[in-house]
């Protein structure tokens, strides 16, 4: 999932302040914590209240979309609603507003969220942890399934570093575990310290460069679907 954090309400309000009618669109995709219809409605109420406090009348409509990052789904779901509105406020990760701005050329879409990282809820206590940094050269097979790129504060491939103290990381005040100690413990458990001791050369950072483009090989594309279109 893409872990997101709602922007400060003042920042959101300042973005939509020039408009009096906005469409607020939730996303039912992988964005976490959930930002669906309820969250869109709540945000609308907050902005309406804030507008009133500023002597302004803000009209809004809250809807949601299965996946804002899918241009076909987003297009068919949102298009019927946009005609009466001056701007769109997206509650998806950054991919949502980027996609909506691309497919709806005549209206501006603003982001209500900050995208934080790719991760998962691991403890059931509102805590989310980063698991993947999209490095394009997955190391999980040699690190016991723990990603040093995403979980080591320095993204080291040959850790731990000197900032590890009793299994904790210097970044964050020794509160979080050192990824490389976790990797060591996991590989030791499976008697695979051979993987730990092995030197790992640097990764190819071209795989992480922006803008990312990936064209699927012809043999993997769904030709039937393309023909139908």
């Amino acid at each position: 999932m893409i872990i997101t954090k709602l922007k400060d309400i003042d920042e959101i309000y300042n973005m939509i302040e020039p408009y009096s009618k906005i469409l607020i669109v939730g996303c039912d995709g992988c964005c976490q914590p959930p930002r669906s219809l309820n969250e869109a409605k709540t945000l609308g109420q907050m902005l309406e209240l804030k507008a009133k406090m500023n002597g302004k009348d803000l009209k809004y409509k809250a809807i949601t979309c299965l996946r804002q990052c899918d241009d076909r789904i987003a297009g068919s779901t949102i298009k019927p609603h946009i005609e009466d509105y001056e701007a769109i406020l997206s509650l998806a990760c950054g991919i949502g507003p980027a996609t909506l701005n691309r497919i709806f050329d005549d209206i501006l879409t603003f982001p209500a969220q900050n995208s934080m990282f790719n991760g998962a809820e691991s403890h059931g206590d509102n805590r989310y942890e980063e698991y993947c940094d999209c490095c394009g050269d997955c190391l999980l097979g040699v690190t016991g399934g723990i990603c040093p790129v995403a979980t080591c504060a320095k993204g080291l491939h040959n850790g731990p570093c000197g900032g590890q103290v009793e299994g904790k990381c210097e970044v964050g005040g020794y509160k979080y575990p050192c990824a490389w100690i976790l990797i060591y413990e996991r590989l030791k458990k499976f008697n695979r310290l051979d993987l730990f001791t092995k030197y790992r050369p640097p990764i190819d950072y071209r795989n992480m460069e922006s803008p990312g483009h990936l064209t699927l090989l012809e043999e993997y594309t769904n030709e039937e679907e393309e023909v139908e279109e």
Partner: peptide, 20 residues
């Protein structure tokens, strides 16, 4: 890490690690 220093908002590089 830069997070420990006096420019906490800076981007730490770590393109290579010290072994590399």
């Amino acid at each position: 890490h830069t997070a420990l220093g006096d420019h906490k908002k800076g981007k730490a590089v770590y393109d290579l690690d010290s072994t590399q």
